[in-house]
């Protein structure tokens, strides 16, 4: 009886270790969790880059919103530039697109925008306070917010394929 108990206990410990290891190996150890999905998007009021006017998230109440966090020094941000530009034009009548530049400076950003052009409003987050509020953990990151102001999800990778972007848009246009 005692022997059975000892063997049973040993097997239970081994099974627990295997379970923990399998769970650990199944996840990307460098992926940063994101728990704001399904929660209200934090409001903010920050300055536009093209003039001194400020913009608040609350200004767009009732509309689906796409927020793209980026920086001029970020290569993948430049890669996804044409996709976002295309999407902002395609969905101009259905959703609001906002770019938020953080961990950068105004001169760099203005120069970049003059050279490349952007088809949607660009805002400047000088102290990265909005980025921290949104749980940003890298660049670029794109947030999809539904018309009720709830964060549906975020994509922490650059968009390369427009079809992929369309699929994400469907989640907030419904």
């Amino acid at each position: 009886m005692k022997k059975q108990l000892a063997v049973g206990s040993a097997l239970a410990v081994i099974a627990l270790v295997i379970y923990i290891m399998a769970k650990g190996f199944g996840n990307d150890p460098h992926a940063v969790p994101f728990l704001l999905s399904g929660k209200p998007a934090p409001n903010f009021t920050i300055k536009r880059l093209d003039n001194d006017a400020t913009v608040s998230l609350a200004d767009f109440k009732g509309k689906p919103i796409v927020i793209n966090f980026w920086a001029t020094w970020c290569g993948p941000c430049q890669t996804e530039h044409p996709v976002l530009d295309w999407a902002a034009k395609k969905y101009a009548n259905q959703a609001v697109f906002l770019g938020i530049v953080f961990e950068d400076n105004e001169q760099n950003t203005k120069r970049f925008l003059q050279q490349n052009g952007w088809s949607f409003v660009q805002l400047f987050d000088p102290k990265s306070t909005v980025a921290v509020d949104y749980g940003v953990s890298g660049v670029p990151e794109t947030y999809f917010i539904d018309r009720n102001g709830i964060i549906n999800h975020k994509v922490a990778a650059p968009f390369v394929d427009p079809r992929e972007f369309v699929a994400h848009m469907q989640t907030i246009l419904q």
Binding site: A71, W73, C74, E103
Partner: peptide, 21 residues
């Protein structure tokens, strides 16, 4: 992961014309 690393690297390097400290 690469993106986070690029962010850290860029922030640490503080190169002129890139992200400011």
């Amino acid at each position: 992961m690469l993106l986070a690393l690029s962010l850290v690297a860029s922030l640490a390097l503080g190169q002129e014309g890139y992200t400011p400290q």
